[in-house]
């Protein structure tokens, strides 16, 4: 019996020490933690008072991304620390001349609004949580540098 346990243990420790199995080891941990998470779901209730809540105005021409306010005025947004970004709310209302024109003439601008500078997403990404975007760009830059370094090597 003990011999069997010892043998099993040896096989297991051999398996653990092969780096090809690294992904499998991490995946096993991931499964365990995900199952723990599933068991804890009843304790995770949604907090109703969220930052930057989503509001829908179906009648607006900017529909899914209507953010309220007229360009060059300030919209009310619910940021974490409003004191730190005194101009938060201006980017939210901003529309480029082209998108201003489209918004006034057609009801379809809402589908491409994220393509134009301005809006609540840009407000969050560039202004109030600008550091996130800086890190994100750095990640892309680093990955790009690695990929192009590997690609350009001739040896």
């Amino acid at each position: 019996m003990i011999r069997h346990i010892g043998k099993g243990f040896r096989i297991f420790s051999n398996w653990m020490s092969t780096y090809e199995n690294l992904v499998a080891v991490y995946a096993a941990l991931g499964i365990i933690v995900a199952v723990c998470g599933i068991l804890m779901v009843p304790m995770l209730s949604y907090h109703e008072d969220q930052l930057y809540p989503k509001t829908m105005n179906r009648a607006s021409t900017l529909d899914p991304y209507d953010r309220g306010g007229v360009p060059f005025t300030r919209a009310e947004i619910k940021a974490q620390y409003l004191d730190n970004s005194p101009t938060a709310g201006y980017v939210t209302t901003y529309l480029t001349p082209l998108s201003w024109f489209l918004a006034n003439t057609t009801p379809y601008i809402g589908t491409t609004i994220v393509a134009h500078p301005g809006g609540i997403i840009d407000e969050i990404l560039y202004n109030t949580r600008g550091l996130d975007t800086v890190v994100e760009t750095s990640i892309l830059f680093a990955a790009f540098a690695i990929a192009s370094f590997l690609f350009r090597r001739k040896d």
Binding site: L29, V33, G37, M40, L44, H47, L51
Partner: peptide, 27 residues
């Protein structure tokens, strides 16, 4: 989702962050 904020300043000392989120972060 469960605390309504991401800032450690707001969350500190209150123990609001659920255990599942902590486990996820550590993993």
């Amino acid at each position: 989702g469960t605390c309504g904020t991401l800032s450690i300043w707001e969350l500190a000392g209150k123990g609001l962050v659920p255990l599942a989120a902590k486990m996820f972060l550590v993993l």
